[in-house]
């Protein structure tokens, strides 16, 4: 973890950073390097120090000792707003400004760096289309008129708009319903593949970490327990704590994935067996052997045909 040699390759490097709040150490002597283009997930329970670590990268939190490098430059040595213009940020609550339209919200950073309105609009329209929001319908809406999932899509557009070197995401999907969460997880994966932008993603959801991360850093009580690829962490946990956290967690698809991709019917007449969203696909398959359809989460009717089409696609 002392990645001193390959500074060029590092999008972000934390070097012995430490942070204390009210005499309580939140981050203890932490060193970490994130490669350029990597989808890096910081995972841990609440209070593990993962959000504090994230916020030290765009200086929302000032480390009390140690250094933070972004693209090889010590961030304490550069103008604050220059740094922040190059770093996209997505918050848990989406935090769209309620007094601004979708366009105005998405264009704040573009505005701040002096991009013309016309150029900004082109860029935002493209991005809105990419996150599945029709620009014509959404550009001039106010956040009040958006669903939770739609808000967070705009939040992602806002973070991407100024073509940042790096995007920080602080539990962006944890407040969403399971279906929207799956949809947005798929969306951010696609976006990452398309743009190859470095993403540092904080979550307390181990399943989400396994699904999304190229690499995962597991944090506990202000310390890194393990950094590695998802399969390394699951198969070779560094210690019993990591093992406990990831016990029974897989990145295997659940029924929510199937629903998220639209493989279900809305017709609900008749009597069906019921299933919850977090049930595994194999449970669903077993039930479909005897029944023609299963009612999931009291609203999504999944037929044998839906199941087969999903399996064929993925």
């Amino acid at each position: 973890m002392t990645a001193n040699k390959h500074e060029d390759k590092n999008a972000v490097k934390l070097h012995h950073v430490k942070k204390t709040y009210d005499q309580e150490v939140v981050v203890k002597d932490l060193s970490l390097a994130v490669d350029v283009g990597e989808f890096f997930v910081l995972v841990g329970a609440s209070g593990s120090g993962k959000t504090t670590t994230l916020k030290m990268i765009n200086r929302l939190v000032q480390p009390e000792s140690g250094q933070v490098f972004v693209q090889g430059t010590d961030i304490a040595q550069q103008p604050l707003n220059d740094l922040r213009h190059r770093i996209g940020y997505v918050l848990q609550s989406s935090a769209l400004f309620p007094n601004m339209t979708v366009f105005e919200n998405a264009a704040v950073t573009l505005n701040a760096v002096g991009v013309s309105n016309k150029q900004a609009q082109q860029r935002i329209e493209t991005l809105l289309t990419e996150v599945g929001l029709d620009p014509e319908r959404y550009l001039n809406r106010y956040p009040d008129a958006l669903s939770g999932g739609e808000k967070q899509r705009v939040g992602i557009v806002r973070a991407l708009a100024a073509e940042p070197d790096l995007i920080l995401m602080d539990e962006p999907f944890s407040a969403l319903d399971p279906i929207s969460r799956k949809q947005l997880q798929n969306l951010i994966s696609e976006i990452h593949q398309r743009y190859q932008t470095t993403i540092i993603f904080v979550t307390h959801d181990m399943n989400e970490a396994l699904r999304l991360g190229d690499r995962i850093a597991v944090m506990h009580a202000g310390e890194l327990l393990q950094v590695g690829r998802p399969e390394q962490i699951v198969q070779h946990p560094a210690n019993s704590e990591v093992r406990a956290l990831f016990e029974g967690q897989t990145n295997a698809a659940s029924i929510a994935d199937l629903v998220a991709q639209g493989y279900y019917q809305v017709e609900q007449q008749g009597e069906y067996q019921a299933l919850e969203l977090d049930a595994t696909l194999s449970t669903l398959a077993q039930m479909l052997v005897t029944d023609s359809a299963v009612l999931v989460d009291r609203q999504y009717l999944i037929t044998v045909d839906d199941y087969l089409r999903y399996m064929a696609q993925n």
Partner: peptide, 12 residues
């Protein structure tokens, strides 16, 4: 959260 967002985007 809104104030944090306005900070994080480097607004004047």
């Amino acid at each position: 959260e809104l104030l944090e967002a306005s900070e994080a985007f480097g607004l004047s």
